[in-house]
Simulated scan of single mutants.
Amino acid sequence: MTINDIQDELIDDFSFFEDWMAKYEYIIQLGKELPLIDDVYKRNEYLIKGCQSQVWLQADLVDGKVVFTADSDAVITKGLVSLMVKVLSNHSPDEIVEADLYFIDNIGLKEHLSPTRANGLVSMVKQMKMYALAMKTKV
């Protein structure tokens, strides 16, 4: 499945919800399903700068694909990072670096997040792309 296939699937999933309360509940549910990050990664060097909540992000290169794990101390933020992990994990560094993450606008996330959460989402994307860029040299 390509990054765009996953984004299209998420856009379809979000289209089923009538209002933003239901969409937020879905985002929170996705956060609850996020595989737990190992506690060794819950340190300052794995924190995403620019997020109001604490968000830890870790990446490994497995068989030429970047595999992300993440966690947050806030339920909505954990859901947001789980969305990003779902979209970008298990793809090549090139695919991640070049990805156009159109689903964020398409499902209306930017206009329904507080400015601090929206900035945090941008920081998550930036950090994930930076990990992928760093891993391009290891492929």
Results as ranks from 00 to 15, higher is better:
Ser15Met: 05
Met21Leu: 15
Lys49Arg: 14
Met1Ser: 14
Ser123Met: 00
Ala134Phe: 12
Ser72Phe: 04
Gly120Val: 15
Gln58Pro: 03
Tyr131Gln: 04
Met128Cys: 07
Ser114His: 08
Trp20Ala: 02
Ile107Cys: 08
Tyr46Glu: 05
Ala22Tyr: 10
Ala99Met: 02
Asn44Val: 12
Asp94Thr: 15
Met1Phe: 07
Thr2Trp: 12
Met128His: 07
Ser53Cys: 00
Met1Cys: 05
Ala22Lys: 10
Ala118Cys: 04
Tyr46His: 15
Phe68Gln: 00
Asp39Pro: 08
His91Trp: 01
Lys49Pro: 01
Ile28Leu: 02
Tyr102Pro: 01
Ile48Ser: 03
Leu10Thr: 05
Asp63Ala: 11
Ala134Tyr: 09
Ser89Ala: 03
Glu9Asn: 14
Phe16Glu: 09
Met21Arg: 15
Met84Asp: 04
Leu36Pro: 01
Glu18Gly: 11
Lys23Pro: 03
Ser72Gln: 05
Glu18Arg: 15
Asp13Trp: 07
Glu111Met: 03
Cys51Trp: 14
Asn106Leu: 04
Phe68Leu: 03
Lys78Glu: 00
Asp60Gln: 14
Met135Arg: 04
Pro93Val: 15
Ala132Lys: 03
Gln54Asn: 14
Val75Phe: 12
Ala118Lys: 04
His91Ile: 04
Ala99Arg: 01
Leu121Ala: 06
Thr69Leu: 08
Ile27Ala: 07
Ile107His: 07
Thr77Glu: 09
Lys42Gly: 12
Ile48Pro: 01
Ser82Val: 09
Ile104His: 04
Gln29Asn: 09
Ile37Thr: 13
Ser114Val: 09
Asp12Tyr: 14
Thr77Asn: 05
Ser123Gly: 09
Ile76Gln: 00
Leu88Ala: 07
Val40Glu: 12
Val125Cys: 02
His112Tyr: 03
Asp73Leu: 13
Met84Lys: 01
Met1Asp: 10
Trp20Val: 09
Ile48Phe: 01
Ile76Tyr: 00
Trp20Cys: 00
Lys129Ile: 14
Asn44Ile: 11
Lys86Gly: 05
